[in-house]
């Protein structure tokens, strides 16, 4: 019985999780193309001030969670070590989504570029769920126009 529940959860995690991931990636790629004309730079702190009339800080953040299948396969991965691709895609999605949110907000304000962008990642699930499970990714930077 327990095995059955486990397999069902694993199946749901795999199929539904994969479906959402594909959909999300398609959405991210589409939006990245739409926002391509506004450059995002990670410099801006040690250089001369960029020429601009106005500047404002923008942030974007997202909280992403593992699906059941990913948790399980990462657990298996732990036995032999190596790249944990399932987590890589999760964090990649989170970062790009957060970046897009910041970018879209800055673009709505009329930014011509975004400088001195910083990333921050933190695990908010705590130790109770075995570490990596729920991760918050945030991006912040200064939009100038």
């Amino acid at each position: 019985m327990e095995i059955l529940v486990f397999l069902i959860l694993l199946g749901i995690g795999y199929f539904v999780g994969n479906h959402f991931e594909k959909k999300h990636y398609a959405d991210i790629k589409k939006r990245e193309k739409q926002t391509l004309h506004v450059p995002v730079m990670s410099w801006g702190c040690k250089q001369d001030m960029p020429y601009a009339h106005e500047a404002q800080m923008f942030t974007g953040s997202t909280v992403v969670a593992n699906d059941y299948f990913k948790t399980f396969s990462a657990g298996l991965r732990n036995l032999v070590g190596g790249r944990v691709t399932v987590y890589e895609t999760l964090l990649d999605r989170g970062r790009r989504e957060a970046m897009l949110r910041m970018k879209e907000e800055a673009m709505a304000w009329g930014a011509s570029q975004i400088v001195n962008v910083r990333f921050e990642t933190s695990n908010i699930a705590g130790q109770t769920q075995g570490g990596m499970g729920i991760v918050e990714v945030m991006v912040y930077g200064t939009g100038i126009r």
Binding site: L9, I12, G13, V16, G17, F20, E21, H24, S61, T62, V63, V64, A65, N66, D67, Y68, K70, T71, L90, G94, E97, I124, Q129, G133, I134, E136, M138
Partner: peptide
């Protein structure tokens, strides 16, 4: 956590 993806409630909270 079963299906994964974004947790909108947490995003808003944070």
């Amino acid at each position: 956590n079963i299906v994964g993806g974004e947790l909108k409630g947490y995003t808003e909270l944070l």
